[in-house]
Design a protein around this nucleic acid. Structure first.
Lengths: 96, 96
DNA sequence: ATCGTATATCGTCGATTAACGATTAATATC
DNA sequence: GATATTAATCGTTAATCGACGATATACGAT
């Protein structure tokens, strides 16, 4: 069995990613992360017209879906896209 | 300005389609519709382990997203995918 | 006109979501 | 060590979701 990076996502994971993308704010976060590769929470708060706590919540949902990963960088939190999972997700949408 | 069928979806529409796909039952409905081109409500009820009213609700959500269209055929309701919108959605995911 | 079938809608219930402000925890800086 | 900065978590509230059974509507057949 070869590891081709394209193992089909199970329905739950797929629906989970869709649900995570099912909010305009989260779509914007993902777009921004893709454009800038990485981004700290505070910068995202600046961009969106939402309270810091709300943004933090959206980031949590995105992390739970697996699409976004976050690492702590001092007092900051640095987020970025899991490109491998995104690739699998794209493939799954393509194959719909 | 040429009509290339690939006009970008606005964030709301995109998030709306994602939200519609954000439930396993609705993913299954969409997959089934894609495989069979068209399908009446009753057949979908047979396939899913859900009450008829629940399935009808899921179909309503899919219709509201625009991804699925339904026409009345006598006493039946016949559903199918809006392939043009699906194409635009796929393109938008691809371009993520 | 009545009866059966197919589907949509209504009403309800518990669970989840989205938003916020307030608080807490962790790290820098002075 | 005190104090700011950054971000996560808590608690609350209103709204929405997901499921169901019951009911209503619409059509086809008798």
């Amino acid at each position: 069995m070869t590891d081709n990076n394209y193992t089909a996502l199970d329905a739950e994971t797929f629906a989970g990613i869709c649900r995570a993308l099912g909010h305009p704010a989260r779509v914007k976060i993902v777009s921004h992360l893709l454009e800038n590769n990485v981004c700290i929470c505070g910068r995202i708060v600046e961009i969106l017209p939402l309270a810091q706590s709300t943004v933090s919540q959206h980031l949590k949902i995105l992390k739970q879906s697996g699409l976004v990963t976050g690492i702590v960088d001092g007092a900051r939190s640095c987020y970025c896209i899991d490109r491998k999972l995104l690739k699998r997700f794209k493939k799954m949408v393509e194959d719909l």
